[in-house]
Design a protein around this nucleic acid. Structure first.
Length: 101
DNA sequence: AGCTTGACTACTC
DNA sequence: AGAGTAGCCAAGC
């Protein structure tokens, strides 16, 4: 476990309902601006143990780039359930929903 | 101990 | 504008 990992987990747990963050943003705040991919990996693997709101994390465009379709749709449903309006292409308006700590 | 792998990003064709 | 590519760094094997 690295400090970076802990920071990532902390940040993600702090995301309130109805808001989202980008992978890059989390990586930057966690101390490694270029570690977006690790954020993803950590988020995904740790969500099982720590129950992290992984669905509130999207890519830099506000879209969901996830590979697994099941999880992809699950994320969309959860976001909508929290009041996040998705575009016709299932994209989030970051100007509106991006959460700044 | 070393190599592969990404729920990404930014830059270039 | 859309597609290809290289860089990134920790986790998993």
């Amino acid at each position: 476990m690295t400090p970076f990992t802990e920071n990532v987990i902390k940040l993600i747990k702090q995301i309130p309902e109805g808001r989202v963050m980008t992978y890059g943003q989390i990586a930057r705040l966690a101390g490694s601006p270029r570690a977006a991919r690790q954020v993803v990996r950590i988020l995904h693997s740790m969500s099982k143990k720590y129950r992290l709101p992984w669905h509130r994390v999207v890519n830099a465009e506000g879209k969901i780039v996830i590979k697994d379709e099941a999880s992809y749709h699950e994320q969309i449903l959860k976001l909508e359930a929290e009041g996040v309006a998705l575009g016709s292409l299932n994209e989030v308006n970051l100007e509106t929903y991006r959460w700044l700590p």
